[in-house]
Amino acid sequence: MLAVNNVYKTFNSGTVNEKTALNNISLHLGAGEFVTLIGGNGSGKSTLLNCIAGVHAVDKGSIIIDGVDVTRQPEHVRAKDLGRVFQDPMLGTAADMQIEENLALAYRRGKRRSLRWGITAKERRFYRDLLGTLELGLEDRLSLKVGMLSGGQRQALALLMATLKEPKLLLLDEHTAALDPKTAVKVLEITEKIVMENKLTTLMVTHNMRDAIRYGNRLIMMHEGRILLDIEGEAKKKLTVEELLSRFGQASSGEEFTQDSVLLS
């Protein structure tokens, strides 16, 4: 479903701030795979997702989504195949617009927007049912401004928006990192439910090793712009945090590895 081929991305190249964020990354995701992506701060996880989504142009390499080379496509064009949820709850939704207006925008992702009315009565009923499945009490507050919602509610809504029109690839960038632990669990459960029910191909960045092990059927670890570990199937199921840490230690070639407090949360 997704093929990332030998992608390089360097920020501020030619200056003292030059930073190679992606260093020859190749990654293939089959249809329906649910991949968790971990790695330390600055290892390039967000950059990888942003390159897939077209926020950044890649320096070298290609990105193929469902057989179509999208390397040169602008962000809003690629968006038709992608569902995205960001770390910051503020970023995924339009705060000054109503819940139903946000959903209606998402419902039209990839469609040509016209001078038809922005939302229909039929859609409204559909949204009400859909919000009901979140069990957050949002189904009766369709015309509430999204800015009034809590971070967790906003992320749950963003998740619905990302999957309302079934995406070929769902990109989640630490979408629970800004939430309190209880809400984070709730949003992760909603995530898993949506992904499983729709068999979505998913790439989920997380800082939490336990979550990375618990969710999904494949785990990828990045370090300094490269993919260090790629574990799937039975091996992934049996994985423990300790084993992950020690394998990270070996793979990052003897680099001194203290138990990174960020990685192990």
Binding site: E75, L82, L91, T93, M97, L105, R108, R109, G110
Partner: peptide
Amino acid sequence: ATGNNSQMARAQGI
């Protein structure tokens, strides 16, 4: 949507 949150707008294909 563009004026309110352009990043979200682009992610929704606008």
